[in-house]
């Protein structure tokens, strides 16, 4: 990987982060529950993924050694995403800019970055396992949002919660369909790797 590639990824990552943190956009994305969950949070994870692509070569030896099959890394991703799926944490991020900053740091560094580092190490079967768990759960959470008679977040209305539920189900269906195509039909440019969002161009290894 050449330095120009690395620095352009770093610029993209920090640029995206700064744009998302920019107050008018940040507040606009957080005004609606569905946009907050389905646009802002994944974009923050993308910032970390870009960082991982840029800094892969400089990954400390002990991480590369210890992250066997990418399992600890993926586990970290699962914990960090679960944490920010707690409705009270969404509320806390809206009520307190400091918590929002914690969100803005932890989603790139504890979700996107470990995902970008560990995913390559995970064997195909492991990736399939992760997708096969992630997609139905996303849909199930969407269904729960629709079924909940009360508001889960103090800062969002019940109708916003229903929209978020439908949106989660839509994302789950879209991901499921994509996954189906990738597995059973094949990804045009794939070299044995499942496709995913915000993937950086393959580096010439």
């Amino acid at each position: 990987m050449n330095t120009r590639f690395m620095s352009s990824r770093l610029v993209a990552a920090t640029g995206l982060w700064a744009i998302l943190w920019f107050a008018p956009l940040r507040l606009a994305l957080e005004r609606d529950m569905a946009v907050h969950m389905i646009v802002q949070l994944p974009l923050l994870a993308c910032v970390g993924y870009l960082l991982a692509v840029a800094l892969r070569r400089h990954e400390p030896h002990w991480i590369a050694q210890g992250d066997w099959l990418g399992i600890p890394g993926l586990l970290l991703v699962i914990f960090a995403t679960s944490f920010w799926m707690l409705p009270r944490m969404l509320d806390a991020a809206l009520a307190d800019p400091l918590i929002d900053l914690v969100k803005f740091l932890s989603l790139p560094l504890l979700v996107g970055l470990p995902l970008g580092l560990s995913w390559r190490r995970m064997p195909l079967l492991g990736r399939a396992f992760v997708w096969a768990n992630f997609i139905p759960k996303l849909g199930a959470i969407g269904g729960l949002y629709l079924a909940a008679p009360t508001r889960l977040c103090a800062y969002y209305r019940l109708d916003q919660q229903a929209v978020a539920g439908w949106a989660l189900i839509a994302v789950a269906v879209a991901l499921g369909a994509t996954w189906f195509v990738v597995v059973f039909v094949g990804w045009p440019a794939a070299d044995g790797e499942a496709a995913q969002t915000c993937r950086a161009p393959q580096e010439a290894a």
């Binding site: 050694q65 992250d67 399992i71 586990l75 970290l76 914990f79 679960s82 944490f83």
Partner: peptide, 19 residues
């Protein structure tokens, strides 16, 4: 490796503590 168990333990402990 042993590094794996150390890393796994660290992630589990920190993750469960955070939740």
């Amino acid at each position: 490796t042993r590094g794996f168990f150390a890393l796994l333990g660290l992630v589990l402990a920190a993750g469960i503590a955070a939740l």
